[in-house]
Amino acid sequence: MTAGAYEIKLDIFEGPLDLLLYLIRKNEVDIYDIPIALITRQYMKYIEAMKSLNLDLAGEYLVLAATLTHIKSRMLLPVSEEDEKEGDVDPREELVKQLLEYKTFKEAALGLDRMNILGRDVFGRDHAGEELEKEEQTLREIGIFELVEAFRRISLDIGQKDLMEIDAEKMSLSDRINDIVDELERRGELTFTDLLEDTGNRKRLIYTFLAILELVKLRIIKAYQAIPYGTIRICLARK
């Protein structure tokens, strides 16, 4: 087979598994009985083509190339007695499992894409009016230092009240992260003080603060302030 027989449509592949599926479909071979030598040869041709086009070849493509070569060599070897004891596993088995799983999700992705998507196929109401209602304040995004300073002030307010309390409340950072995201989804915007003040005890206060820092770091929420030492507003960072 000559290289000219290949249509080079590299950008349409979502990854090495996708390329492999394409080759299997193109050659009309059984996914449970992949002719490894043929498929490996064609796969390598694609890799070569990508290299010659100076495409930034993702490492994953090379990993699969190595796997294919390895399977091919194992299939050439005579089955040893040890292997036979172990139940004579087809060296392709693992790859087939992976391919089938990927295929399932590729189909699911296409299925999702066929659904009526809000903003593409169906539309909700535009809420232009609400943009106007928003205060004409210029807010600037703030960083960790302002958050820490604000935290210090609030933690001073809460004081040492619970010094003697034996705290049996189980808490985790992810719970607080979820609570905060839920609360923001419900109310849209919260102030830093809203979030910290209803916490009551010191441990909860610290967890809440850590959760806020984590969310800011992950860019899930954004924190804004109009003036230095002013109210810190927190909202979801969605587009």
């Binding site: 950072l173 992810s174 992260i177 992950l218 860019r219 979801l236």
Partner: peptide, 12 residues
């Protein structure tokens, strides 16, 4: 997907 708010971190 996180930016579009279609998925979120549910924990660790």
């Amino acid at each position: 997907l996180l930016e579009k708010n279609l998925i979120r971190i549910v924990g660790r």
